[in-house]
């Protein structure tokens, strides 16, 4: 449903660290091998942020690019929303640190925690501020430094994750385009399936929490896989059916890059060509809330997103949470 105030993505940006960790590098750390990782996940390499830098450094780079491409000065930003599970600190928020870096001094700032669905949630929240006429420019960022919460002794998870950030400047527009529809869902009964148990009020940092490796990501891979392949398609239909659209009517499906097998499963089930499903998990691994904005930015830069294209973005992850956004570019 398009209201008087439409939300368009006026600019995108992305930032990944320089250091590349290949599957061969991981073979030296844990008992695994390139062939196993590629066949199970599609990941060939991922990026790791250097010591001394943190989430805000990636956020700032991605944000500056998005603002520049949108032609918006940081001082014109009304609100900053950062989706992350790896902020610099438990408090203050990652978005406040970013606000200071950008000198977006009139902007409100908040973080949003929705696991790998974070960017979809954040973009949807931003959309509400635009659509209601309250704000004109909302900066939405997905930024993660998962290497800091990855258990480098757990071969089932350490091969999966990477660091990176993506940003989008959501802007008010009177043109007949932008966000058409969204869907946000959750099922907290699956909380234990993908969790960092330590560091919060349940298990604050202690010698025991360190000894028990509670500060790292734990994941039940098979259950998450099953959950993901089920809900992605469901979400796509939820986005397009009210608009009378069919999957084949869409030009691009930007799915959360958690596992190539999930993307392939959905693509085959929908019987659509692979060109409609951008993939960067081979190069960046799973960067949680950053995968979708990074992929979106790459499509924009490569010129594969054209004016008028219909694009669906779908995320899923810890919570459990999942959701999607349908937009006309």
């Amino acid at each position: 449903m398009i209201s008087n105030y439409n939300s368009i993505i006026a600019g995108t940006g992305a930032a990944v660290p320089d250091q590349v960790i290949t599957n061969q590098d991981l073979e030296k750390i844990v008992e695994t091998n390139d062939q196993w990782i590629v066949s199970r996940t599609g990941i060939r390499e991922r990026r790791k942020l250097e010591e001394g830098l943190s989430s805000v450094d990636l956020s700032e780079r991605a944000s500056r690019e998005a603002l520049q491409r949108a032609g918006v000065d940081p001082s014109e930003v009304d609100m900053i929303i950062v989706a992350t599970i790896t902020p610099d600190y438990p408090t203050p928020s990652a978005s406040c640190l970013l606000q200071a870096r950008l000198q977006s001094l009139k902007a409100g700032a908040m973080d949003l925690s929705a696991g790998c669905t974070g960017f979809i949630y954040a973009l949807t929240v931003a959309h509400q501020f635009i659509r209601s006429g309250v704000y004109s420019n909302v900066l939405v960022v997905g930024a993660e430094v998962l290497s800091r919460v990855t258990d480098w002794e757990d071969r089932s998870t350490c091969v999966l994750f990477g660091d990176g950030a993506g940003a989008a400047l959501l802007q008010r527009s009177s043109e007949d385009k932008g966000i058409i529809n969204f869907s946000l869902k959750s099922d907290g009964r699956g909380a234990e399936l993908l969790i960092i148990p330590g560091g919060g009020s349940a298990h604050p940092a202690s010698q025991a929490s360190l000894d028990n490796r509670l500060h790292y990501i734990r994941m039940n891979g098979n259950e998450i896989f099953k959950f993901a392949v089920g809900i992605v398609e469901e979400t796509i239909y939820e986005l397009i059916e009210p608009e009378g659209l069919k999957p084949a009517d869409l030009d691009l499906f930007i799915l959360h890059q958690a596992n190539l097998r999930i993307i392939d499963h959905v693509r085959k089930h929908l019987k659509l060509p692979s060109e409609k499903f951008p993939v960067n998990i081979d190069r960046f691994g799973n960067t949680s809330s950053a995968t979708i904005p990074i992929a979106l930015h790459e499509e924009v830069i490569a010129g594969r997103l054209k004016e008028g294209d219909l694009v669906a973005m779908v995320g899923f992850g810890a919570g459990l949470t999942w959701g999607g956004i349908l937009m006309r570019w």
Binding site: S39, R40, N222, F225, K226, V229, G230, R261, H265
Partner: peptide, 11 residues
């Protein structure tokens, strides 16, 4: 068939 294939097969 690996474990993920089995999951897809079951579905």
């Amino acid at each position: 068939a690996d474990s993920l294939d089995v999951v897809e097969l079951v579905m």
